[in-house]
Design a protein around this nucleic acid. Structure first.
Lengths: 253, 253
DNA sequence: CACTATTTGTCCGTATGTATG
DNA sequence: TCATACATACGGACAAATAGT
């Protein structure tokens, strides 16, 4: 049953931050269920009564959550009949390009869009400072951004630190071209890229941006760009929603 | 200045979900700055006054956010003096000891040990049945095992399903050789291996085995082995503790 | 020693939002 | 729909600790 899977999502969300209004927590949980395809198009939603009993909330709270879903056009409500999902889920996750060549990295940029949250010159935290080989009071360019597909689903969150003498990292440019190409415009040719794939729990901030449950498992990508002399010119941490983006590869024999 | 980076963070968070209380949004932003190491241990936090003016909120709201940080033990507050970060950021608790080149899967087997939990002939769940191209009542070989290093640290958990006509999957053999070599002993030559890397939260069972917190983020590996005719003969899901194992790779030019 | 500026702690009153029965 | 209770957010006011002049 749907209610069952909702309950666990509910418990997790409630435990994590009880400060979000109940009706909005429920709205988020249901919305996630619909947009992730767990509740299919045409399927009947739980009734206000069911929600109210299953989650131990008042019927009005359940109603408000459902009303907001209807307002978003995700469900259609009909008195005496019930609420039905109208949102059509398209299942194909964005697959990462096959790995192995630098050029493939740039491919991804062509199939998705970037929203820049901030571009700043700042003193980096110590661990970044050390890998970039900077002095104590030197600054670097910090870029925070998200990546989303054609339908507006945000599937990635990035924080990157780049050596400050590399210019041209304006908000507008970063949204239009890859960071790699901006680095090249500075006359730097990248000789090597090192990547590590791991996993990380979503904190509140990232969970909000990626529209996933608090503490959800995210695919973590750490990447370092090296110039011709072997110096690190750029470090990046990317977090991906694994339901929308996974790293795929084929090993031939 | 710290305030500067906070402001952009602030604008993004506010836009994302305006239903989260102001003080809690601020709390999250500040917490993120501290736990990510951007504000270092011992450093002075912005004063309530500064926050209130910079973000255009009341001092009480700023105060509440700071109080919650103090309550979490992330900062220490002192009247007349200010608030200071007490949280000590440890950059990378454990570097992954096993950096696997994607190409050589079998290498891993040489530097670690396997403990087999179970080997059974069972009816697979539907999604496995479909990828293995089996009929409704056909069985397959299910193998559950963990992998640990020389010091006994369990860093991986595997569940695999193999076509039943492949023989030789005894508990003892699986612990001593790779599954790939056992498949080869059956006269099958693997033409292709497809892999996908994602992430998944640890359930109670896996959390216990891998000795991580419940719900911890794990690196998820899905792998399919194809024979010469292009049939899938084996599907595997592996879960890795990202503090002990990450996937590393180098992209050359 | 007072005097002052800074910064946090505490309290009040008010308005709005949230959640219940 | 109404009444009730609690949380959030604001502005203002004052007290108390700290540090410097």
């Amino acid at each position: 049953m749907l209610i069952k899977s909702l309950k666990s999502d509910w418990a997790a969300a409630a435990g994590a931050s009880s400060r979000v209004p109940l009706y909005h927590q429920l709205y988020s949980s249901l919305k996630r269920g619909i947009t992730s395809g767990e509740i299919e198009c045409g399927e009947q939603m739980p009734t206000e009564q069911q929600l109210s009993e299953a989650l131990d909330i008042s019927r009005i709270t359940a109603k408000r959550a459902m009303d907001e879903l209807a307002n978003d056009g995700l469900i259609a409500r009909q008195r005496g009949k019930g609420s039905y999902v109208t949102y059509k889920y398209s299942p194909e996750p964005v697959k990462a390009p096959l790995l192995g060549l630098l050029e493939n990295l740039e491919d991804m940029g062509k199939h998705s869009l970037v929203k820049v949250i901030s571009v700043e010159q700042l003193m980096p935290p110590e661990h970044v400072r050390l890998t970039l080989n900077l002095e104590k009071n030197q600054e670097a360019t910090k870029i925070v951004r998200t990546r989303y597909d054609e339908e507006g689903n945000v599937f990635a969150f990035y924080v990157s630190w780049t050596l400050a003498y590399l210019k041209g990292f304006t908000k507008r440019k970063v949204e239009r071209q890859t960071r790699l190409s901006i680095i090249k415009e500075n006359g730097i040719s990248i000789s090597k890229v090192e990547q590590t794939l791991g996993a990380e729990n979503a904190d509140e901030f990232v969970a909000n941006l990626l529209n996933v449950a608090n503490n959800a498992a995210l695919l973590q990508l750490r990447r370092q760009h090296y110039d011709q002399d072997g110096n690190v010119v750029d470090v990046l941490v990317g977090l991906y929603n694994p339901k929308l983006f996974q790293y795929g590869m084929v090993l031939d024999h």
